[in-house]
């Protein structure tokens, strides 16, 4: 069990540093020239978003709720679609990738997302060769997603849960959506916009908020707007 506790301790350290080192949340790549394929409607595909909603039991355990989660997924889809439509962009959803290469690209994104979080948001130490620049890519493999979904850009929506931080902090996107009461919890969501032609991450956003009572009206709208308000589109 010592190893267990030792590892937990590392994660605790990581979690607090993540919280402590927050300055600006949004990062835009220096070469984020948004361009669209001609002859097609502008389209963005939301790729297998990772969302879990639930509540905290009295004993402090996380209780996942399928109904809340499904509802949140739909609301996020809807709201993202509306937001994109305002910018004249079509919304597509990649629910269940089938192409093995696309799956590898999506898994690669998880690793890239963690690197961005670690190196651009403080905890992992800045990489001297990158500094504060958002300079990461998924590589040309992203094109398989582009052709499968006819979309020039992809959105990844990632929830980094806080099981690893001390106490009862659980991060879920839009727990606010259904007014779930997250006592003492912390919400962290991050999302990235990927140019599917090159695989370059052109925009990255991390949302951190300390939850109080989250029973506010239209919370889904707020979360999505908050997340995507600075999309360079």
């Amino acid at each position: 069990m010592d190893t267990v506790l030792r590892k937990l301790a590392c994660f605790v350290c990581l979690g607090f540093l993540l919280a402590a080192c927050t300055t600006t949340s949004t990062k835009t790549a220096e070469q984020a020239n948004i361009s669209w394929s001609s002859g097609l409607n502008k389209r963005i595909v939301l790729i297998e978003p990772d969302i879990t909603l639930g509540s905290l039991t009295a004993g402090g355990a996380f209780d996942p709720r399928a109904d809340w989660t499904r509802a949140a997924e739909q609301l996020i889809d809807q709201e993202t679609a509306i937001l994109l439509k305002e910018k004249n962009i079509d919304f597509a959803k990649a629910d269940n990738l089938q192409n093995p290469r696309s799956i590898q690209v999506a898994k690669l994104h998880s690793a890239v997302g963690r690197s961005i979080l670690l190196h651009l948001y403080g905890a992992g130490g800045q990489l001297p060769n990158k500094g504060k620049a958002l300079d990461w890519s998924l590589g040309p493999g992203a094109n398989t997603i582009r052709t499968d979904y006819n979309a020039d850009y992809g959105l990844f929506l990632f929830v980094q849960d806080s099981y690893t931080t001390a106490g009862r902090a659980f991060m879920m996107v839009g727990a606010a959506i259904l007014g779930a009461n997250l006592q003492g919890g912390t919400q962290i969501a991050f999302t990235s916009l990927v140019d599917l032609k090159t695989g370059d991450i052109v925009w990255f956003n991390r949302l951190v908020s300390t939850a109080g009572d989250l029973r506010t009206p239209d919370p889904a709208k707020k979360v999505v707007r908050n997340l995507y308000e600075e999309l360079p589109l």
């Binding site: 590892k7 937990l8 039991t57 004993g59 402090g60 099981y163």
Partner: peptide, 18 residues
Amino acid sequence: AKNTSNFLAFFSLIAAGA
């Protein structure tokens, strides 16, 4: 499992992953 205080540790360390 949910009702024990070890649940967090449990969740944290079960690394099956995708």
